[in-house]
């Protein structure tokens, strides 16, 4: 169960960020933003070593006292960041991986929508053409935040 899911553009601005409504949204924004440091670090380190391996999952970016932040980067350098409650020990690496894969698939679906401009925020309040795709993405994120995948 994720408490915050974020999709971050190549230029490091958020395309999508959603956190559990019960908690302080701002805190997660800061957290996700800060985690980009580690993403950058890992991506640049990976750029040298693992260019062929296509390993998109970056693993645990950094733990905090209460949360664990995981990262995932697509080939187009769009980043997915997921914040998971530390107390939720049931979530292993494999689960996180599969969640990211699901997220990636959903994101790809949005990208496939011809009305979607790459770089636009994913928000269902946008134009009619993409609102459906964005809503689907949103629903998927909601499901990730509710249940263990």
């Amino acid at each position: 169960m994720a408490v915050c899911v974020a999709v971050i553009a190549k230029e490091n601005y958020p395309l999508y960020i959603r956190s559990t409504p019960t908690e302080n949204e701002l805190k997660f924004h800061y957290m996700v933003h800060t985690s980009l440091d580690v993403v950058d670090e890992k991506v640049s380190a990976m750029g040298k070593a693992l260019v062929d391996q296509r390993e998109l999952y970056l693993g645990l970016l950094y733990p905090t006292e209460d949360y664990k932040v995981y990262g995932y980067v697509t080939n187009s350098k769009v980043k997915f960041v997921m914040v998971v409650d530390s107390s939720n020990t049931a979530l292993r690496d494999n689960e996180i991986r599969s969640m990211f894969r699901k997220l990636h698939n959903s994101y790809t679906d949005v990208m496939c929508n011809p009305f979607y401009n790459p770089g636009d925020r994913i928000q269902s309040s946008g134009n009619l053409g993409i609102s459906l795709s964005c809503r689907a993405f949103d629903t998927m994120v909601t499901s990730m935040m509710i249940q263990v995948c």
């Binding site: 230029e11 601005y13 958020p14 701002l26 924004h29 800061y30 933003h33 980009l36």
Partner: peptide
Amino acid sequence: NYLAEGWALPITH
């Protein structure tokens, strides 16, 4: 920094 990367909530805060 936040402005440069367009993080609305941190900007506001």
